[in-house]
Design a protein around this nucleic acid. Structure first.
Ligand SMILES: [Mn+2]
Ligand SMILES: [Mn+2]
Ligand SMILES: [Zn+2]
Ligand SMILES: [Zn+2]
Lengths: 127, 127
DNA sequence: ATTTTATTGCAACACTGTTGCATTATTTGA
DNA sequence: TCAAATAATGCAACAGTGTTGCAATAAAAT
């Protein structure tokens, strides 16, 4: 099942690459000029994650956020072992700095990292 | 709005204190011998979190898990800055070891830590 | 051009968690 | 001890997020 190129997917990918924050489905919908079906957006995002173009963060608000993988992203598990910050005021989710030293007990295997902190970001606190 | 003592709440709290894993609403429901209304359980759990008796983890399956705070838990934010592991085979969520060195950029304030890793636990991998 | 099948849109669904409101039961304290 | 105040409960309805089924559409391959 090889992928096909569509305007729709291009639009979503471009959006994610231009945006410096991780975006929720809602946020993506809001920024797309041409309306795309909700379900289609979800399917596109899942495909992107599957293909390693994008990574998924589940924040403590229980929602999924999507961020384009960095250019230097090796697309391996460790590359996504970094901190995410969700500001409860502006509701933006940022990918922060490099890998965190997360160590599991012997015998455990990590398949996915989901490291998120919520609070208020610098910008919001300065008001 | 002071709290009142009820059998229902006792039952849930006892369950959480006896269980060594963080439990989901579903898991709690399954282990309660006397049936309690779904909504009541949710409300009880939210109260426990509010009162600092229990902490809430949102795993990357998007669901909430609840774990009794350790006896030595200071009930401050830092005390919950530890790793959680969800096994995708047995679906158990464990609270792991001590505080992780999570550093935020200057000017940010953390209100909640949600550090979760999913994968397979030792027990499941040994099969 | 024709065929193949990945992608889309729509409808319906599943799941988790919340809110409104009347009822019940724990506290308080007269 | 009893009555009043109100926290906790149960039920119904709702809200939000994400998924699945299926027919229609459109990209790619021949
Ligand atoms: Mn990230
Ligand atoms: Mn924990
Ligand atoms: Zn902010
Ligand atoms: Zn396991």
């Amino acid at each position: 099942m090889s992928r096909r190129n569509t305007k729709t997917q291009e639009a979503v990918l471009t959006l994610l690459r231009e945006e410096q924050y991780a975006m929720s489905h809602e946020g993506i919908t809001a920024k797309l000029e041409e309306p795309i079906d909700r379900v289609t957006i979800y399917r596109i995002l899942n495909r992107f994650v599957e293909d390693g173009l994008v990574h998924r963060i589940v924040a403590d608000d229980g929602r999924q956020y999507f961020a384009s993988c960095a250019k230097n992203c090796a697309h391996d598990l460790a590359a996504h072992n970094h901190l995410h910050f969700r500001c409860t005021s502006c509701d933006r989710v940022e990918c922060l700095q490099g890998p965190l030293g997360v160590e599991l007990p012997a015998g455990y295997r990590a398949d996915n990292y989901n490291i998120a902190v919520s609070g208020s970001c610098k910008e919001c606190r300065e008001e």
